[in-house]
């Protein structure tokens, strides 16, 4: 397993990892550098359950190495790969998980918990502003999709 874990990553490198993710592509590094210290490194063996459907979501995950299967019972909804993110909305609210997540291979993930994120948002409004921007972009994209679908 330890072969997956990188040498100790610098905060600087964690920022670069965040920046490489689709959801943070538009976020300035100055904001991501506030978020990077919250990234906890976690390793999971193949088959390990990350969370189950119905659990209260209180963190988001970034896949650094490996694959994660998102499933409802035995039905696979998606297999997420490196540089993909899941559970990001749980950073902002505490809804129950709509599906389960299991390590599809040995995985090295970064986990960001809701609680320290809230604390960060309280002291750094620009982080909240950055997240609001991301949500707005997603909402716009969804609206455009809906309009296109209705045409």
């Amino acid at each position: 397993m330890s072969k997956l874990s990188p040498d100790k990553l610098l905060l600087f490198e964690k920022v670069l990892i965040l920046k490489s993710l689709a959801i943070f592509r538009e976020s300035p590094e100055t904001i991501l550098s506030e978020l990077a210290p919250l990234m906890q490194e976690e390793e999971f063996e193949k088959g390990a359950k990350l969370f189950s459907e119905g659990d209260i979501g209180d963190c988001m995950f970034v896949i650094y190495k490996g694959e994660v299967k998102i499933h409802k019972g035995s039905t696979t909804l998606a297999v997420l790969k490196e540089k993909e993110v899941f559970g990001e909305l749980s950073l902002l609210d505490s809804e129950t998980r709509s599906a389960s997540a299991t390590a599809n291979t040995d995985c090295f993930l970064f986990k960001i918990d809701q609680e320290p994120f809230y604390e960060l948002v309280e002291t750094r409004p620009e982080v909240a502003k950055g997240f609001i921007k991301i949500l707005c972009q997603r909402l716009r994209a969804q609206n455009e999709k809906a309009v296109a679908a209705n045409r």
Binding site: F12, V15, S33, P37
Partner: peptide, 10 residues
């Protein structure tokens, strides 16, 4: 600042 300090050590 932890980011600056850590990168400087590096």
């Amino acid at each position: 600042n932890p980011l600056l300090k850590e990168t400087a050590v590096f």
